[in-house]
Design a protein around this nucleic acid. Sequence first.
DNA 1: GCCGTTTTCGGCCCGACTGTTTTCAGTCG
Length: 575
Amino acid sequence: MKNIEIALIFYKIADILEMLGIEWKPIAYRRAARVIETMSKDIETIYNKDGLKGLMQISSIGKALAKKIEEYILTDKIKEYELLKKQIPKGFEDLLYVQGIGPKKVYKLFRKLKIDNIQKLENAAKKGLIRKLDGFGDKSEQEILKSIEIFKRGQERMLLGKALPIAREIESSLEKLKEVKKVVIAGSVRRMKETIKDIDILVISSNPKKVVNTFTTMPNVERVLAKGETKSSIVLKQGINSDLRVLEEKSFGAGLNYFTGSKDHNVELRRIAITKGLKLSEYGLFNAKNGRYVCGRTEQDVYKKLGLSYVAPELRENFGEIPAAKKSKLPKLIDYDSLKGDLHMHTKWSDGANTTEEMIKACINLDYKYIAITDHSKSEYIANGLDEKRLLKHCQEIDKLQKKYPQIRVLKGAEVDILSDGKLDYSDKILKKLDLVIASIHSRFKSQKEEMTKRIIKALENKYVNIFSHPTGRLINEREPYEVDIEKLFETARENNVFLEINSFPSRLDLKDINIKLALEHEVKFAINSDSHSTEHLKYIELGIAQARRGWLESKDILNTLSKQKVEKILQSKR
DNA sequence: GCCGTTTTCGGCCCGACTGTTTTCAGTCG
């Protein structure tokens, strides 16, 4: 799949053009890059089927960009990009990622001081050369040095599972102020994106000054980047930025919409507003001619006035949700409280931190109607995987506990390794004795695509396999997904009635949103699991549900929204 | 470079904050 590669090149072309002072083209390249990056279909497949015409059907792609995509598919190169790169020294585009420096300043620094990488920028700032340039001064020179430090510390985005509790903490500390009417977490955290660049907080208050002051003096503030009347930006000690915006009540809906993003979603909304003779900003929806306020108190009002059905935050990625909202064709997303059980968790028997009984009790507290205990199989030496003898013993323990806790159905399961030849780590005879079988890849991630695809297909064709866990094997910020023909994988899952897992563990979130959407188009069914290794992890299920929502899933697409009876019936049909 | 129930040419989202400015350009979200 070349989508990501092409998108990346388009982004880079946009950066370079922008630094060369060329207007508008960068916007077109970025818009196209964004579309290509987030579409679930393989762009090469589209080209092979319908050629240039097919490519031009994609929004934001015209003749010129279609030709460039064709060129990349056929030759693995885009000539114009190669030429542009020659004009730009290595490390040049890093400069754009320094906070406070944009394309105009980069261009000036290059022209006047021959600065073309971060090191040279730092040296020049330390020598006091930058303050002498027109448009720069003492302050900007110091800011540049501070920003370089932050840049060096790393640009990694924070896991949603880590950012969410921090955001909720800020939320509750601002809520304590009596001047505050409402606090909402907005931005990518509200959209439940898998990683977060900064935490956006929206506050409704008639005393913005007080709110801004409190915000900038919280104990976990490391540095204040900006502090104005109604807006502020800080760096937190946890290593993430946070932005605050204070608005009046009548702007709440428009403000929340604006501050939730995504940027691309907002830009689309504003374009629609213009076609209707309106103007949309964070203050509300206004008549473009006379500037009169139309609405803005709630998000629902804004969408309605724009002729759209309400779009849930998780869908606001300009992912196709706007055309769907126009036609009232948005999915009825799965709710955060619709899961009746969790079908993937570990205990002390393998690498979990809690006993089977502790896990069961914790799940009863969550009001689950059923769960599956799924410890590792014998190949997982490091994880203390169970051999056949221990597995059967563990099953006896579960039977006993089942009698003690009749209010919850405890399924006897296992997370079974898929060996390198595609066979499973337990024999069919053993698998048959279990209520539920999860198959997983935990080894040889670097195999060739064909080999990996064959290996997985063989495993999914085993008639006892119910769920394929963390289907792409990626670990966010740590490990790329393994190479696999993902559409073939989806086809095999559907044909063999294997549920694909949406693994809720913060660093996994696997399948991820766009793959979920693609799998849905292949009519695959899913299971949302926590993969808990302690009772503390059970709550991560929220993150998995969020990704399911981002992948446009409804309750009916998901195994563990079903009643205990229905789930048992489905599982037994494979025994 | 894209796109069109305003347009095939001339637009392209909107506003706050900062620093270096005497009224605004650049950056950011």
